[in-house]
Nucleic acid binder design. Structure first.
Length: 179
DNA sequence: TAAGTGATCTCT
DNA sequence: GAGATCACTTAA
């Protein structure tokens, strides 16, 4: 498998929904014990700014979510339900809190299982997305065709109110599931 | 279908 | 400091 080009900070400094959509088909890369794992991203969700009631930042900045208020291109990792680490990519400009939740890859579906498979936890929280911290995203030229991408409401955010629950901010690359 | 799990947030 | 909440998984 040929190596791709690691995505740089400015790639993530674009409208959140654009970045979310574009991440489908990219490679999530993890270096462990000298070996590099590459997983094809197939499921993502957008959490877009302070007005989005499903976004952790909609109530303002806290110790946990402050990385989302910083520059794009960093990891936001936090523990959910006492046992699952959620892996997010910070997007958008400084002071606009937004992120993309990585929910699954072709090989591993499920946000909690993904982080478990890659040994991701609080160590990566707030790190810059680059090979330097052992966890990064590469573009190897693979594109998820428009016709194969499905948009659905987000998962597990029933508390956010109808307007936001209904938004189709979840992107799934169907073909990825079949592979 | 329900229990497990613990950090974080909000209210006293 | 206490209690509720939570962007989930697994085993029945």
């Amino acid at each position: 498998m040929s190596c791709g080009e690691p995505l740089k900070q400015d790639y993530f400094n674009r409208p959140t929904l654009e970045v979310t959509r574009d991440l489908l088909g990219k490679c999530l890369c993890r270096k462990l014990d000298g070996e590099t794992k590459r997983l094809r991203i197939s499921e993502v969700e957008a959490y877009d700014g302070p007005k989005d009631k499903a976004c952790h930042a909609h109530r303002g900045k806290t110790a946990r979510n402050e990385v989302m208020f910083g520059p794009a291109g960093r990891w936001y990792v936090y523990l959910c339900y006492g046992m699952h680490w959620m892996l997010n990519v910070v997007t958008g400009p400084v002071d606009f809190p937004a992120a993309v939740l990585l929910r699954g890859c072709v090989e591993v579906i499920g946000p909690g299982r993904l982080t478990k498979a890659l040994s991701v936890d609080r160590v990566q929280d707030r790190e810059i997305i680059s090979p330097d911290c052992g966890l990064w995203i590469e573009d190897d030229g693979c594109e998820a065709p428009v016709t194969e991408v499905r948009r659905t409401p987000r998962i597990g955010i029933g508390y956010a109110g109808k307007e936001w629950v209904d938004k189709p901010y979840r992107f799934v690359w169907e073909k990825g599931k079949l592979a």
